[in-house]
Simulated scan of single mutants.
Amino acid sequence: MVTQPLIDLQSATVRFGAKVALSDVNLTVSRGERIALVGANGSGKSTLLRAAHGLLPLATGRRVTSDAAAPRIAMVFQRPFMLRLSLQANIELGLLLRGVARAQRQSRALEALARVGLASEAQRNARVLSGGQQQRAALARAWALQPDVLLLDEPTASLDPTAKREVESLIDAFADQGITVLMSSHNLGQVKRLASRVVYLEHGRVLADVPTDYFFRGPLPQEAALFLKGELPWT
C-alpha cells in the first residue's frame, strides 16, 4: 500500500513582489522522515518551510496534504516569540488557539514543560529566560500540540554549545517518538546528526534532494559540491 505524503509541494513558486523566492519546487514530506534544508542565506530555506506549512500563498503550483486528515503542523522559529506571561501560560495559549479543552490545557502544558526540562520554571516570566531556555520552551509549546510534522527554522543558530546539544537532543527524541521533522540548518554537523535526508537549495531552486549519507559522500551538482566545501558565499 502506497502512503500519501503528509505534505506534497508540486511545482511550487513563491514571489514577493518582483522577487522570486521559490521557483518550481517539488518536495514531498512523508511520515517519519527527518529532512534538513541547507543552502546559503537567501537560498529559500525559510520560505520553503513557510510554504510547506501553508503560511505563504503559492504564485504557481500546489500544496497537497494527506487525504485522510490534514496533518497537524507546528513550527518553531529561529527566534521564538514569547508573550510577557508565565512560561506555563505561553504553552496554554497555544493549546487554547488549537482548540484544546480548558480541562486539558494545564496538564498538557506542564507535561510539555517537564518533557523539555523546564517544569521548575513554569511560573517564571517567559521573557526573562535564557535563549536556550526559550528555544526549549518553544519546542515544548510545539510538542504540546501533538503535531504530525514539526517545522524548525535554524533551531540552534543563536545558542551556545551546551544549549545546542540540549535542543538537538530534544529534536532527536521527538523524531524518535514518530514526529516528522523538517528543519533548516547552517550547521552541517547538526545535519549529519539529525537528518536522514538533505534538500539543497540555491536561489530558490532545489538542486539536490538525497539521503544524508549520499549528500556528504556521493557526487552532487557542482553548486552543492562547492557549498559543501565552503567555496560558496553565505549571502
Rank of each mutant, 00 (worst) to 15 (best):
Q133D: 06
A122Q: 08
R141Y: 10
V100H: 04
R141C: 09
S86T: 15
G132H: 06
R115H: 14
A122F: 08
P147L: 00
V116T: 03
A101S: 09
L97W: 05
R105D: 08
V100G: 03
L83R: 12
R79Y: 12
A101H: 11
L139M: 10
G132V: 07
A142V: 01
L95R: 00
L95A: 00
A89I: 06
R115T: 11
S120A: 15
G94P: 03
R124H: 09
A114W: 12
E92N: 07
A138L: 09
R98D: 04
L113A: 05
S107C: 12
G99P: 06
L118P: 01
R136G: 03
G131A: 03
A140H: 08
R141L: 12
G132A: 09
L145I: 03
A101P: 08
R127K: 12
L139G: 05
L87Y: 07
I91D: 00
R84G: 13
L129C: 04
Q133L: 09
L129N: 01
V100W: 05
L145A: 05
R105G: 01
L85D: 11
F81G: 12
I91W: 01
A122P: 00
R84K: 15
A142N: 01
S120R: 10
S107E: 14
R84P: 11
V100P: 02
R102A: 10
L87I: 09
R98K: 10
G132L: 07
A112N: 09
V116R: 00
L110P: 07
S120Y: 11
A126C: 07
Q106A: 14
S120P: 04
N90D: 07
V100S: 01
R115F: 14
L87S: 02
A89P: 00
L118E: 04
L110V: 11
R124C: 06
Q88E: 15
Q104W: 10
L85Y: 13
L97Y: 05
N125T: 00
L129G: 00
G99A: 04
L110K: 05
R105N: 06
F81S: 14
L110S: 08
L145C: 05
S86N: 12
A142I: 02
A122K: 03
L139A: 09
R105V: 05
Q104K: 11
A138Y: 06
L97G: 06
L85H: 14
S120K: 11
Q123C: 07
V116H: 00
A138T: 02
L85T: 14
V128T: 15
A122G: 02
Q135N: 11
R136H: 06
R115M: 13
L139W: 02
L145T: 04
L97I: 06
A140F: 04
Q134S: 12
W143D: 08
A144K: 03
W143S: 04
A137N: 06
L110E: 15
P147N: 04
W143E: 08
Q88M: 13
R79N: 14
A144C: 02
R84Q: 14
R108Q: 15
S120G: 13
S130N: 09
Q133T: 05
R141N: 09
G99V: 05
A103G: 11
A114C: 12
N90K: 01
V128M: 15
Q104A: 15
R79G: 10
E111P: 08
V128S: 15
L145Y: 02
L145Q: 06
G94N: 04
Q135V: 13
L95Y: 01
I91V: 12
G117R: 02
P147F: 03
A114P: 07
L93I: 13
A114T: 13
A122S: 07
E121P: 09
